[in-house]
Nucleic acid binder design. Sequence first.
DNA 1: ATTCTAATTTGTAATGATTACAGATTACTA
DNA 2: TAGTAATCTGTAATCATTACAAATTAGAAT
Lengths: 138, 138
Amino acid sequence: MNTEQVITMLRKNGHKVTPQRIAICEAVLSNKEHPTAEIIFKKISKQHPTISMTTVYHTLDLLKKLELVHEINFDNRVTRYDSNVSVHVNVICQKCGKISDYESEAIQSQWNRIVSAIKIKPVGQRLDAYVICEDCKG
Amino acid sequence: MNTEQVITMLRKNGHKVTPQRIAICEAVLSNKEHPTAEIIFKKISKQHPTISMTTVYHTLDLLKKLELVHEINFDNRVTRYDSNVSVHVNVICQKCGKISDYESEAIQSQWNRIVSAIKIKPVGQRLDAYVICEDCKG
DNA sequence: ATTCTAATTTGTAATGATTACAGATTACTA
DNA sequence: TAGTAATCTGTAATCATTACAAATTAGAAT
């Protein structure tokens, strides 16, 4: 989903379109690295020097409610935002914290089998696999 | 794993065995409801009125390092502790926050297929399915 | 185009779970 | 039984996030 489509969706849901929102949406939705609110804030500060953290948090909440991003919470108490809302596996290095997404038809169908075995219809999911990545193994 | 076995493991790893540790281990390992540090603290306070939150946190960290519990972090920034360290699915209600564990040979093998498809050997995993539970659907 | 108004933005202050710290206590060793 | 390093405890600090209120602004109505 590109920014233009996000704007349309904002309007459709009765939300105002502001320069800050556009900037935040672009920054989050184009970033595949599961950024934190602070990373988004810093990236946007270059173009919007007066932007505040509060606005970033508000907009991320909005995107969360619109189901355009998912939150991923970690033990360091910093929330990361994932613009990949399809069924996928977050492969997370225990040492350096780097996250890689894995997405495939196979993963999708295995997960479907798991949820149907449990007899539930999830409204969302989070699949983490914790590893020590190649860089950290050395 | 029962408390006696935990004591043995503590000794084997060179950690001292204290009444507080025994109480905390018993409370966490016997609780299937993914308690918070505060819940553990309150439960133990009855028998150990002078216990401190710091001790609870220290002991939970120890159990985490010994791989006897897993942390589950949520967006309200409160950490929950899961004494089920096998491969299982946390079915979490989006409204009331209740967590139910689902564990089976089938889940285990489906997950194994997923990780082998990705070509990784995880040191751990977290599988969440988000639902609206029957009580909250009403 | 201008006005109006509710939504949004912003800066500051509050929150609260967790961690750091240092002194008192205690489990275990010899 | 004494010695010592680990553990426990209470208090203070941390810091990501949220609450709040005043200033600004997008979009609707005129």
